[in-house]
Design a protein around this nucleic acid. Sequence first.
RNA 1: GGACACCAAUUAAU
DNA 2: ATTAATTGGTGTCC
Lengths: 164, 164
Amino acid sequence: MSEGITVFTDGASVGGGGGPGGWGVVVVRGGTERSLSGHEPETTNQRMEILAAIKALESVRGFEGEITVYSDSSYLVNCLRRRWYVKWLAEGWTNSKKQPVANRDLWERLLAAISDAERTGASVEFRKVRGHTKATHERARGNRLADSLAVAAKKEAIKRFGAS
Amino acid sequence: MSEGITVFTDGASVGGGGGPGGWGVVVVRGGTERSLSGHEPETTNQRMEILAAIKALESVRGFEGEITVYSDSSYLVNCLRRRWYVKWLAEGWTNSKKQPVANRDLWERLLAAISDAERTGASVEFRKVRGHTKATHERARGNRLADSLAVAAKKEAIKRFGAS
RNA sequence: GGACACCAAUUAAU
DNA sequence: ATTAATTGGTGTCC
C-alpha cells in the first residue's frame, strides 16, 4: 500500500520586506525524513514561502500517491485551498483591487508543479499549520524543523550577501 | 569653539509591560557630567525611554550647538532617525496597522522639545547604542550610567508604590 | 475591516 | 538558555 508523503515548508527573510532570505523543506516518507533548504540575496518572506512549496514538490517529482504540504503561511495555503488562483487566472492576474498579483512568477511555477504532480499520478493537498507552536505533535515538530532550516538558510544568505 | 553636548538616556520598568518604572539621563558637557532621574508608578519600558529623552532635552534648553542623544532603545531611535513620526503626523497618529500610535502624548512632547531646541540654535541627533555592553568606550560607559540611574529610579518607584 | 506570516529592538522572569 | 510582555516595521491576500 502506498504511504503518502508529508511535507513541511517554511520561509524567512530579513525585515519581512526586501532583503536576503531562505527557505526550508522537510519531506517525510515512510519512516525517513529528508530536508532541503536554499537562500536568495534579495527576496521577501512571501516569496520564500512560495518557493519552499515549489522546491518541495519538485523534490518528490514522479511520486504516485498523496502529497500533503503543511505551511504556516495563510498567503500560500489560502491561495490553494480557497482557489484564489482561479480568479487570478480568470482576471488576467489582477487581484481584487485590480492590481497585478504579486509574485506571479512563483505562483505560476507552483501551479505548474502541482499540475505536473497530478498528471503523474499524485494528489496534492495544502494544509495550514500554526507557526511557532510549542506543541509536540508531528505537524508542530515538522513546522519547527522547516523553520529552523529556513532561518539557517537566511543566515547563510546574510553571511554571503551582507545584512540588510 | 562650542563643544557639543552628549546625552545618554535609558528607561526601565517592571515586567517590560505595565508597572512601576524609572528613567535616567547623563549629560556630558565639556569635562563635566550631570545626571537626572525620575520614576512613575505605572508605566512601560517604552514610555520611560521616551520620557528620558524628553527630560534630557528639557535639561539643556537654550543650548546652542550640537546635542547628541544616545539611547539603547531602537523604538526611540528609529522613530527619530527613520522619521516614523512624519508618517504618524501625516496619517493622523495611526501606525501601519491602522491602530492609534502608542504613547502619542510623549512623542508629541518629545517632538516639541526637539523643535524647541532647534529653534533656539541647537541641532539634535539621536544615535543608537547597544545596551548591556561590557565595552569600555565612552558610549558604553554613558549607557551603563544612564541604565544604573534608570534602574535605581525604578527601584525607588517599587519601594514607593509597591512591586508588580 | 479581517487573516497569516516575516522581521527589529527593548524590558523583564526563571 | 528559554519564556513572556511591550513597541515598531513590511509582505500579501480577501
